[in-house]
């Protein structure tokens, strides 16, 4: 493969192999982006977003931005894929097709903005140009000063943790606040939907919030103990619905009494058997 690329580079004259790699990666990014726009299955879209992150991480490596590539592959391809999957679990598996409309105004805006960007490209400094603003400004001072002041070979770490220590501290606090917000809104065990409020003497609780380990709709089979194969089905739908309602209230009462961390273990016993295939959730 590399031989092929080198041979192609030699044929084309002075084209460096990294340029070919860059072009290939950019082309793959465009293809993946179009696939994300076209596909309706959200599962495939989430996976393709991971692929997109991984491709851009590879591209960052070829631009020598290794730290950025590291973050992109860890956060973009790793964590955010999982978070998207768990968000998808709560919502839907397919997106409805968006009707195609002839929106001329937005199209004109896109075309004009794209043309303006292409017009601006020749004014940009070449990659790695020593006279570019990035390489003549204060960035170079960090490169020379950090060798003596910090003695850390990785200048990115030196700048982040030492010179810009305040910024990184605030970033850590921002991440902390994000976690705090998630914990306050959702709760660690998915039990934030259990809140109740008494507004002007009227009891208000969230009936609509999806709950952990509790069957939300009557169509979910309520049986906790697996039925023997010979046993008959539950006779009528009405009784099963009542059972679910009774179980719901019972579960809610136990959940309200127990502290949040203990709940998962108590709910383990009430875990339902695997749903039969084909039953829509």
């Amino acid at each position: 493969m590399l031989n092929l690329i080198n041979a192609a580079a030699a044929q084309a004259g002075n084209v460096p192999p990294t340029l070919i790699i860059d072009i290939c990666l950019m082309a793959m990014l465009v293809v993946v982006a179009f696939a994300i726009v076209r596909i309706r299955s959200l599962f495939a879209i989430v996976m393709l977003q991971g692929v997109y992150s991984l491709l851009s991480a590879a591209w960052f490596v070829s631009l020598d931005a290794v730290d950025v590539a590291f973050t992109e592959s860890a956060v973009g391809a790793g964590i955010s894929t999982v978070l998207m999957l768990s968000a998808m679990l709560l919502t839907d598996r397919k997106s409805a097709p968006v009707p195609v409309k002839k929106a001329l105004g937005p199209l004109m805006v896109c075309v004009l903005a794209g043309a303006a960007m292409f017009y601006a490209i020749p004014d940009m400094p070449a990659f790695g140009d020593p006279d570019s603003p990035a390489n003549t400004g204060p960035g170079m001072e960090y490169m020379t000063a950090s060798v003596k002041q910090v003695e850390v070979p990785n200048v990115v770490t030196a700048v982040l943790a030492s010179y810009r220590g305040y910024d990184t501290m605030a970033e850590t606090v921002v991440i902390f606040m994000a976690g705090l917000g998630v914990l306050l809104l959702l709760g660690l065990n998915g039990n934030a939907g259990f809140w109740q409020a008494k507004v002007q003497g009227q009891n208000i609780c969230t009936q609509a919030a999806p709950r952990a380990r509790i069957l939300t709709s009557p169509s979910d089979k309520p049986n906790t103990e697996p039925r023997a194969p010979g046993d008959p089905e539950p006779s009528s739908k009405n009784t099963s619905v009542k059972k679910v309602a009774a179980k719901k209230t019972a579960a809610r009462k136990t959940a309200a009494k127990k502290p949040a961390t203990k709940r998962t273990t108590s709910k383990k016993a009430a875990k339902k058997p695997a749903k039969p295939k084909g039953e829509a959730s």
Partner: peptide
């Protein structure tokens, strides 16, 4: 964040 989302279903 993973626990909070994953525990809801």
């Amino acid at each position: 964040i993973f626990y909070a989302f994953g525990s809801r279903t």
